[in-house]
């Protein structure tokens, strides 16, 4: 019984949330248009959360992802103001993401600082770089090429309803692509299995010949690139960049991974479970907005749901002694 509750309690809760909105909003919630909207709205969070999963598999964290997302947007925007083509600006931002991620990995694995402390420090550093590069201002308008911001507005047209086009957004497809890639890496490669091994028992993994230091370093690289990708998606969506715009992503991404962990077999972070966590958070935002629920009440409700899901999972674990 406890086992069942632990495995499927969260899934049942998620289904209940969807049913609730479907009933309360019969005309608008279960429409394809609304779900395409939701998919686009959660695409940035999905990329951050899914790549965050890579380090959380080892029991680590990356608190710097929000700052990195802001920094990546600013790097691209500043590159654009200097007349760089879109591919070069995007490439520079992703390179910064990779370097920043590897630097986190270096501090955690080679130097041996606790991830919480190391990435808290780099959070501050990357945020400082973002302020320095942008001069604290929002970069927008003619400085942002239409080809860049257009990516976040476009997609594959599926058809039309009510005289409005139905579009499968590029942002959604990008998030799905990143999710698929990380799923492959974590679930289908030796690299991924070793990361889970480190998460299970780092000492045992090292004794078994796993190169723990190198793997941890690389894992943080994934998270850095993911954060930078999300930052670029955000910058494209708002057609501007400012040094704080990504800061909301970090805590929400960690919350999504935790929410997902309550669904997986041994309470481990899993990519698809993380994605489910992201979807729930997105659905809550979308549904509660349509139901007129006050923005501040919305925050309370979302937090309470996370507490509830993790509590049920904890009870389930105690009941099964697992």
């Amino acid at each position: 019984m406890g086992q069942v509750m632990r495995r499927y309690g969260t899934a049942a809760g998620m289904a209940a949330i969807v049913v609730f909105f479907a009933v309360a909003l019969p005309d608008t919630f279960l429409t394809l248009r609304n779900w395409l909207n939701i998919s686009q709205q959660i695409s940035m969070l999905a990329v951050v959360a899914v790549t965050m999963t890579v380090v959380m598999v080892m029991g680590d964290f990356d608190l710097s992802v929000g700052s990195m997302a802001s920094l990546a947007g600013v790097v691209a925007a500043v590159a654009f103001t200097h007349g760089w083509p879109v591919w070069a600006g995007v490439g520079a931002a992703l390179a910064v993401g990779l370097l920043g991620g590897l630097f986190n990995g270096l501090l955690v694995s080679v130097v041996g600082i606790l991830p919480f402390v190391a990435t808290l420090a780099t959070l501050t550093m990357y945020s400082g770089f973002a302020f320095l590069m942008s001069g604290g201002k929002t970069i927008f308008g003619r400085d942002i090429p239409a080809a860049f911001s257009g990516f976040a507005r476009g997609g594959i047209t599926l058809g039309a309803t009510d005289g409005r086009p139905l579009v499968l957004p590029w942002l959604t497809l990008l998030a799905l692509g990143v999710t698929a890639a990380i799923w492959l890496v974590l679930e289908q490669t030796a690299f991924g299995r070793r990361l889970y091994g480190i998460g299970g028992n780092a000492v045992a993994a090292r004794l078994a010949g796993v190169k723990v230091m190198r793997l941890r370093l690389l894992a943080f690289g994934f998270t850095g690139v993911g954060a930078a990708t999300a930052g670029l998606m955000y910058a494209a969506r708002v057609a501007s960049a400012n040094p704080t715009q990504g800061s909301g992503l970090m805590l929400t991404a960690i919350a999504a991974v935790f929410l997902g962990m309550t669904m997986s077999a041994f309470g481990q972070p899993r990519v698809l479970a993380t994605l489910a966590g992201v979807v729930v958070l997105g659905v809550m935002d979308n549904g509660l907005t349509q139901l007129h629920v006050d923005s501040y009440v919305r925050d309370v409700v979302v937090g309470a749901i996370i507490v509830l899901a993790v509590s049920i999972s904890a009870f389930g674990r105690r009941a099964t002694g697992g």
């Binding site: 608008t28 909207n37 686009q40 940035m44 969506r237 708002v238 715009q245 935002d285 907005t289 349509q290």
Partner: peptide
């Protein structure tokens, strides 16, 4: 319906899409 996105500009776009969809 007053919606505050607490500094998040991308969320303004998301909430605009939501209320458009809501009619």
């Amino acid at each position: 319906n007053v919606i505050d996105t607490a500094g998040d500009v991308a969320a303004v776009i998301s909430r605009m899409e939501d209320v458009v969809n809501q009619g």
